[in-house]
Design a protein around this nucleic acid. Structure first.
Lengths: 129, 129
DNA sequence: CAGCTGTAACATGACGCGTGTGACACCAAA
DNA sequence: TTTGGTGTCACACGCGTCATGTTACAGCTG
């Protein structure tokens, strides 16, 4: 039915969690370009959240170019954008944050890079259906 | 005077930013084990935050074992703990989040790992004084 | 037409965050 | 002993975010 689930974490806005789950479903191949995305009210029912919150989720995904709105019909997963711009410094802060956290728990650079690669492969593998 | 600075980012709690800046100073060698950490009120003055907020920062760093309190004297940077426990799954969520973000902006696995390595080396290099 | 879709504008309550104020126990130096 | 520094705690207050709730509108399809 809904191509993704979520395990609610305290302290993190539910809206962001749904957004993240949707992105994860897209990049892992569970949601392919052209697939119909759940409607506002259906998404709200499935995720146990209010329709208003679900609308904000779809609005954000649309604003990021991941969804395309078909007025009166619904939303559809967009084609991967050709974001070949300056994409280097966008994740600078997140990278720095993860690096510091890894240092704190005593990880090695190699171990961290390996964990990244493992997660990456894990996502790609799910889309081989 | 204060071994670290911060550039306030909107949307992120100032307290967490100070905590992060302090950790960064520690793991990059600007703050070594045994060094005196700024007092609550001094830190508040330097960071333009309230003393109460600064206290919470120190409390969190102490709770994480990065600072040691000398009652009546002040706080001192602790020795790196021997956290050789189950440290693998602790960053699972952060790794997954960064991976999805990288996928969204069109990064390659290699590029992401390279960015991690670059950031890592950049932190280690600062401590060669 | 009915029934679905997305979108918008409010109000409401809960929670986190930072500030502000005050007080306490501890220790060192004058 | 007094003074002045240290960390710690407990409130209160204002502000913003977040999710919920309600209502309404415009668009498309059958």
């Amino acid at each position: 039915m809904i191509p993704f689930r979520l395990i609610p974490l305290p302290g993190v806005p539910i809206g962001e969690q749904v957004v993240f789950a949707a992105k994860k479903a897209m990049f892992s191949g569970k949601l392919r370009p052209g697939d119909a995305f759940p409607s506002v009210r259906e998404l709200g029912r499935a995720m146990k959240i209010h329709a208003n919150t679900a609308q904000k989720v779809i609005a954000q995904l649309t604003a990021e170019g991941l969804l395309v709105v078909k007025p009166g019909i619904g939303t559809v997963v967009a084609a991967p954008p050709v974001t070949r711009g300056a994409r280097g410094r966008l994740l600078e802060r997140e990278v720095e944050q993860l690096t510091v956290q890894a240092l704190q728990v005593g990880l090695t650079l190699g171990e961290l890079q390996a964990a990244i690669g493992e997660c990456w492969q894990g996502l790609q593998k799910e889309g081989k259906s």
